[in-house]
């Protein structure tokens, strides 16, 4: 399983959700898996994607929201897990793509263990670890929100599309997708 396979499984299980992706692998995989759908792709601001997804979730309580995060991203923004546990939006799922490496910067290994689901559980968030597409699908369908799904995969194939997105275009498409523009 690679990042695009994981993302495709998440998309198939949460078709109506609003998606936010962190820079690098997550944004590239979401572009590939969704055929460049109208999602909130981040091109920078490492560590801020989950906080942005909380903002989307609070603004759109009637919509499901999925945040796709790289594992390096989740480490840099780890404190946001505590904020997630405090805010507890009942419509938000965080999916951490865990390959143990900083992919976009050249494939350096992370200097810390992947323990995202275990930490989330300690914070009283529902969580699980998936290692197959079937487990991803089941978890997206069944985990009570707010939740964190840690997906471990070994195939570190770059998804393909550029993660260097055009910010105003991303914003305009996502605003339309979210349904209300002011």
């Amino acid at each position: 399983m690679n990042a695009t396979d994981v993302t495709r499984a998440v998309l198939d299980a949460a078709r109506s959700a609003l998606f936010v992706s962190s820079l690098g692998t997550a944004t590239s995989a979401l572009r590939r898996a969704s055929n460049d759908g109208p999602h909130l792709y981040l091109g920078g601001s490492m560590g801020s994607a989950l906080a942005a997804a909380i903002g989307v979730a609070v603004r759109c309580p009637e919509r499901h929201v999925v945040c796709l995060l790289g594992d390096g991203e989740m480490l840099m923004g780890a404190s946001t897990l505590w904020s997630l546990a405090g805010v507890r939006p009942s419509n938000l799922l965080a999916v951490v793509l865990c390959d143990g490496h900083y992919t976009i910067t050249g494939g350096q290994p992370l200097g810390a263990p992947s323990a995202f689901a275990a930490v989330a559980a300690q914070l009283d968030l529902s969580s699980s670890v998936a290692t197959t597409a079937r487990e991803v699908t089941d978890a997206v369908h069944t985990l009570p929100r707010p939740a964190l799904l840690e997906v471990r995969y070994d195939e570190r194939a770059w998804p393909g599309p550029s993660p260097f997105v055009d910010p105003p275009l991303v914003r305009l498409r996502f605003e339309a997708e979210a349904g209300e523009v002011r």
Binding site: A51, R59, E175
Partner: peptide
């Protein structure tokens, strides 16, 4: 920076 990220997401959703 979480406050900024939160505000950006909220804004992106029309808030």
């Amino acid at each position: 920076e979480e406050c900024v990220g939160y505000a950006c997401g909220h804004r992106a959703a029309g808030g």
